Amino acid sequence: MEVISIKRFMLPFLLVALSITSSFLIKAQDVREPVLDVSGNAVRTGVNYFILPAGRGNGGGLHVASIRNRTNPLVVSQNADESALGSSLRFSPVDPKENTVRLSTDMNVKFTSMVISDSSTVWRIYTELIPQRYLVTVGGVVGNPGRETLGNWFKIDKYEDAYKLVYCPGVCNICRPFCGDIGVLVENGKRVLFVGRDKPLKVTFHKL
């Protein structure tokens, strides 16, 4: 009888232990791999970085430019001169408690080394400058994930031996946004960032 009592006691204990272990494993799998800078360190929130193209001869860093005689909004552009670092940026993951930028995770991107008098420096998607083109511009907002801020969220994914920027927000369960990689479109001699299904801009992250 004593052996039977021990077995009856152990069974629910084992079931609880298995449940806790399974929950831990599921949470561990949900933690995505961190994005690394060129020094091999995790990219952090609250820290300034330069986004630069991978490899030589592929242009310089990122800044803003005006196109088609429009100064509002300004588009995110790439310097043609590869020696130009561009403007520094910070990343803000959708989870405000997260201090590491992780792969395939929604985040806001904000220029930190510039001030624009009539606009924020947060990245967003804008479709009215060039018809049927999803350009990356400034003028977005940080936080408040949902339908109203759908155009303000970007992701970083691995691409070959470096990374790529992606627009495919997951902050609205009922929304069906256009998704694509961030590439470069030449408009009147200016290299502007846009969402497309062509070759993405392969990038690396350099801590300021």
Results as ranks from 00 to 15, higher is better:
Thr204Ile: 07
Leu14Trp: 06
Phe91Trp: 10
Ile51Asn: 07
Gln29Ser: 02
Ser117Trp: 10
Asp157Tyr: 02
Leu89Met: 04
Asp106His: 14
Val75Ile: 07
His63Glu: 04
Val122Leu: 10
Ser113Asp: 11
Glu160Gly: 06
Phe154Glu: 06
Val35Pro: 07
Lys164Asp: 11
Glu2His: 13
Leu89Ser: 02
Trp153Ile: 05
Thr71Gly: 03
Gly46Ala: 11
Lys110Met: 10
Leu135Gln: 13
Ser22Phe: 03
Lys158Asn: 09
Lys27Tyr: 15
Arg197Lys: 04
Tyr49Ile: 07
Ser77Arg: 00
Asn173Cys: 12
Val115Lys: 15
Val43His: 09
Pro131Thr: 12
Gln29Leu: 08
Val47Ile: 09
Asn188Asp: 10
Val94Cys: 06
Asp30Ala: 15
Asp30Val: 12
Glu148Ser: 14
Leu52Lys: 09
Gly189Lys: 05
Ile67Trp: 04
Asn58Val: 12
Gln78Trp: 15
Ala28Tyr: 14
Leu74Met: 11
Phe9Tyr: 10
Gly46Ile: 12
Tyr49Ala: 11
Phe50Gln: 11
Arg68Met: 13
Gly146Asp: 09
Asp157Ala: 08
Asn152Glu: 05
Thr127Arg: 14
Asn152Trp: 00
Ala54Asp: 12
Asp157Gly: 10
Ile116Thr: 10
Asn152Gly: 00
Val109Gln: 13
Tyr134Leu: 15
Gly59Arg: 03
Ser88Phe: 01
Leu11His: 07
Pro96Arg: 14
Phe13Val: 06
Met1Arg: 13
Pro53Tyr: 07
Val109Lys: 02
Leu18Thr: 07
Asp37Met: 09
Ser120Gly: 10
Lys202Ser: 08
Gln29Thr: 06
Trp153Asn: 04
Ser87Met: 04
Leu15Ser: 01
Arg102Trp: 04
Cys168Asn: 01
Ser88Lys: 06
Ser23Arg: 14
Tyr126Gly: 00
Val195Ser: 05
Lys158Thr: 05
Ser87Pro: 00
Val122Trp: 13
Phe178Ser: 05
Tyr167Leu: 00
Ile125Gly: 12
Leu103Asp: 10
Ile174Gly: 02
Glu2Thr: 13
Val94Glu: 09
Arg197His: 11
Lys27Asp: 15
Leu85Thr: 04
Glu160Cys: 04
Lys7Leu: 05
Gly189His: 03
Ile156Cys: 02
Ile156Leu: 07
Val141Trp: 14
Gly140Arg: 10
Thr71Val: 08
Val171Leu: 12
Val186Glu: 15
Ile116Arg: 11
Pro177Glu: 09
Asp95Met: 09
Pro177Leu: 14
Thr149Arg: 06
Phe194Gln: 01
Leu74Phe: 05
Val184Gly: 03
Val64Arg: 01
Ser39His: 02
Pro200Gln: 06
Val171Gln: 10
Ser120Phe: 08
Gly196Tyr: 02
Lys158Gly: 08
Phe24His: 13
Asp81Leu: 15
Pro131Ser: 15
Val43Ile: 10
Ser104Val: 13
Leu62Cys: 03
Tyr163Pro: 06
Met10Gln: 07
Pro96Ser: 12
Lys158Tyr: 07
Thr149Pro: 01
Ala54Cys: 07
Leu201Tyr: 08
Ser22Tyr: 09
Thr45Pro: 12
Ala54His: 01
Arg147Ser: 11
His63Cys: 15
Ser120Lys: 12
Thr112His: 14
Pro12Glu: 03
Asn72Cys: 03
Pro169Tyr: 04
Glu33Cys: 06
Cys172Pro: 01
Val171Ile: 11
Asp161Val: 15
Phe111Cys: 08
Leu89Phe: 00
Ala65Glu: 09
Thr204Cys: 02
Leu15Glu: 08
Pro145Tyr: 00
